[in-house]
Structures are given as C-alpha cells and as structure tokens.
C-alpha cells in the first residue's frame, strides 16, 4: 500500500532542511561541538534522500550488468561476491574492458548518492 505524501525522499528533505536552517545555527551558538555533529547528520540525511530516490534503479542496473558479465542470475550480493573473488584471484583485471565499464558505471551511480560533488 502506497503511503500518503510526502514521499520518503520528500520527508527526508524536509527534515534535513529544518535541521540545517534552524537547528544547526542554534547549536553553533550554544554547543559548537554538537553543531559539527549536526552537520554530519544533515549530510547523512541528504545521502539517504538520494539513496531513496536513486538507489533502486542503480541496484537494478548493477544487477543487469553483473548478469551479463558473469553469465548467470543470482542476488546482487552473491554476484558481487563472485566478481570480488575473480578480481582477487586475478582471473579478471583492469585489461577487461567490459569489467571496467561495469565498475565505472557502478561507482558513478554510488558516488551520485554518497557525494555527487566529489571529483
């Protein structure tokens, strides 16, 4: 059953905006150490907002690429485990263009959620 609006992303944004614009300045005046912690919290809420919005499609794309790369279907974690194993043993490496395209795409989706400003 769908929840009423706000969506999860909208609610997270509303909370982050309140904490950033109203709670943080008050904390900076009274408890600067907590002001710093609050910035960490606000930043984490922004990550969650992007994850709720972008995560499911990113996971689906990752899964589809892994199925193509490994030639079998399985849960995402299991496929990543197999890939990690191949990379540790050296069975695949950076000379594999399909592998590198997959990793580039996966990390591009991950950083778009965790820290889109990173470059």
């Amino acid at each position: 059953m769908a929840q009423d609006r706000p969506t999860a992303a909208e609610l997270l944004t509303a909370i982050a905006d309140f904490l950033r614009e109203e709670a943080t300045p008050a904390l900076d005046r009274s408890e600067p150490r907590l002001g710093f912690q609050m910035r960490v919290a606000v930043n984490s809420l922004a990550i969650l907002e992007r994850e709720v919005r972008l995560g499911p499609a990113a996971d689906a794309r990752e899964q589809a690429r892994l199925v193509g790369l490994l030639g079998r279907d399985a849960p995402l974690d299991e496929l990543n485990r197999e890939l990690a194993h191949q990379l540790r043993s050296g069975e695949r490496d950076e000379t594999d263009a399909a592998l590198m395209a997959h990793l580039e795409a996966t990390i591009s989706d991950k950083i778009a959620i965790a820290n889109p400003k990173w470059r």
């Binding site: 990550i47 991950k110 965790a114």
Partner: peptide, 22 residues
Amino acid sequence: SMEHASIGRRAVETEVDLLQLL
C-alpha cells in the same frame, strides 16, 4: 558513533579515485 558510521559512506570517494588512478 554516528560520525564513525557516516565515514563508511566516504569509501566510495576512493573507489572513484582508484579507477582514475588505474
């Protein structure tokens, strides 16, 4: 610690950098 927990999400920054460096 929330601060420690949140640092986990910074690991991907180095994954971006590693792919560039390689």
